[in-house]
Nucleic acid binder design. Structure first.
Length: 506
DNA sequence: TTGTGTTTTATTGCCTCC
DNA sequence: GGAGGCAATAAAACACAA
């Protein structure tokens, strides 16, 4: 790994030598992959982590810090954008007050509350079944996330990346219909002009595209109203008081939905998002998330894992959700299921063995209440994997993936989430395939698409002790930051995926 | 080929916490 | 006061349409 990275760095250095005059240099794909991977693990790396990561990637600590800072902002913006969409919807044609997740969960503030979710809204969205979701649409998935997350996951969705998390849900047909006109182009309209322009959002919304999808829209609304709105009930837009315990208990009801939302406000599935997902990222890595979702039942089984009580956070919720997704892989005793992480590969190789001795990162959140022994046992249970091998894996994938060269890799979708830059085929043929398939997810995935490549890219890097430590120490010490523990971000490897990953390494 | 728009990177200042 | 993070800003890099 180090060697490979080193080579990569050298090549970059040579390249850089010719570009010394450039004020800034783009991160290499390798660097981005590693950074994103690391970011998914630790949004707030310790100084030591940064240092070692910087060393490994041939960057300066300053660059690392800056990158993480911007990366967090990126996530935050995403969150805010999503929130604005929800707000727009609420005040727009469709009174969707039942899906307030985004707003509260993403309301970003310096206090780090942007992951907060108002329980009331959580409750209120219950009826919608699949509100909140994900996808995004916003497509503003991080380049890497799209890439690596899928690599690892197809299941895993490792992350903490809100986008990752938000990208993974909902199959509700109603939702799909609704979303079609809410975001004509599959993009959620950002609230601020900047974000708006960046998303290329066309201020259309429902009204503008009404004519095009009028029927679908009307149908969707009717469906929603039919379920959510009753003549004898409060007018649309009026928030309902939290229902008393057991209010939804009914022998006839699906066992999954209620529990699902009660315990996991974040999981709700947003209609808009789902659609957008289908429209904008068909066949892309996005589906991976959904495709690997386990049933809601499986999710429901682990509604409230230890340490997730209290104020919900997007990340945590998502993490929780991920737990569900990987129920067949996830072990409650294993808060850190192995995952494919550049970080891990560093760890295993000894290249990056963080001790989490960071000034502010010693503190562990006691609320997690997970014996270190368990963590360690898990962490140490995957043998070793040299960083060199890991690096080679990455490099191989970067260089061997057909025409995916470094540059194309960087901008072609592996790392580029800009929808406008995505191949048009993605929205045509694949979408059709989706519609034709009983499985909206699997059906979208071409045999030789990125997912396949991503899977090949999957690296099985066991977590090290460091991971456990660091995870627990995510942004400790500062009240202004909410916990962002990876412990709640288990990797959603399914057995098959895990095996696949293992075999790929073999 | 050029112009425009978007994304990424780097810098700087302010704020919060220890 | 120092350290770390957030936010704003500028500029480079890049993609796409005309």
């Amino acid at each position: 790994m180090e060697e490979e990275l080193g080579n990569a760095m050298h090549s970059e250095e040579n390249k850089d030598s010719t570009e010394k005059n450039k004020k800034r240099k783009l991160k290499t794909p390798t660097q981005l992959v590693a950074l994103e991977k690391f970011y998914n693990e630790h949004k707030y790396p310790t100084e030591e982590m940064k240092s070692q990561l910087a060393e490994q990637l041939g960057l300066t600590e300053k660059q690392i810090s800056g990158w993480f800072c911007h990366r967090r902002l990126k996530d935050k913006r995403f969150c805010e954008t999503y929130t604005s969409v929800r707000q727009d919807r609420s005040s727009g044609v469709i009174q969707d007050h039942g899906s307030g997740l985004a707003q509260d969960s993403c309301g970003s503030t310096k206090n780090g509350d942007y992951w907060h979710i108002d329980p009331r809204e959580v409750e209120s969205q219950k009826p919608y079944g699949h509100e909140l979701a994900t996808n995004n649409v916003l497509e503003r998935r991080s380049q890497y996330t799209e890439n690596v997350s899928n690599m690892e996951n197809t299941s895993s969705e490792s992350s903490s990346s809100l986008k990752d998390r938000l990208l993974s849900q909902s199959e509700n047909p109603y939702d799909t219909e609704v979303s079609r006109y809410l975001t004509h182009e599959g993009a959620i309209p950002p609230s601020n002009p900047k974000a708006l322009s960046s998303l290329r959002y066309k201020p259309s919304g429902y009204l503008k595209v009404k004519g095009e999808v009028e029927n679908a829209a009307i149908t969707a609304v009717k469906r929603q109203l039919g379920v959510q709105y009753r003549e004898d009930g409060p007018p649309l837009g009026v928030e309902f008081q939290p229902l008393p315990p057991g209010a939804f208990e009914s022998p006839a009801k699906g066992p999954s939905h209620d529990s699902y939302y009660v315990g996991n406000p974040l999981l709700p599935r947003s209609p808009d998002i789902l659609t957008m997902k289908k429209q904008r990222a068909l066949g892309s890595r996005y589906e991976v998330h959904s495709s690997n979702m386990s049933s809601q039942d499986s999710y429901r089984e682990e509604v409230a894992p230890t340490g997730t009580t209290g104020r919900p956070e997007c990340q945590e919720k998502n993490s929780v959700y991920q737990l569900k997704k990987s129920s067949n892989y996830y072990n409650k005793s294993d808060p850190f299921p192995r995952q494919n992480s550049p970080l891990n590969m560093y760890e295993e190789s000894g290249g990056l063995t963080f001790s989490s001795s960071g000034k502010r990162d010693h503190k562990m959140n006691p609320s997690y209440n997970i014996p270190r022994s368990q963590i360690d046992s898990v962490s140490n249970n995957h043998g070793s994997y040299s960083s060199k091998v890991a690096s080679e894996q990455i490099e191989m994938q970067l260089h061997n993936h057909g025409s995916v060269g470094s540059k194309s890799f960087y901008r072609s979708g592996y790392l580029d989430y800009n929808p406008k830059k995505m191949p048009k085929e993605m929205f045509n043929g694949e979408e059709k395939a989706v519609n034709e398939s009983s499985d909206p997810v699997r059906g979208k995935i071409p045999a030789t698409n990125e997912l396949a490549v991503a899977n090949r890219c999957q690296l099985d890097f066991p977590r090290s002790d460091y991971a456990a430590k660091a995870s627990f120490s995510e942004k400790p010490g500062r009240k202004s930051h909410t916990r962002r523990s990876t412990m709640e971000m288990p990797y959603s490897f399914t057995v098959d995926e895990a095996e696949e990953t293992s075999s790929s390494l073999d």
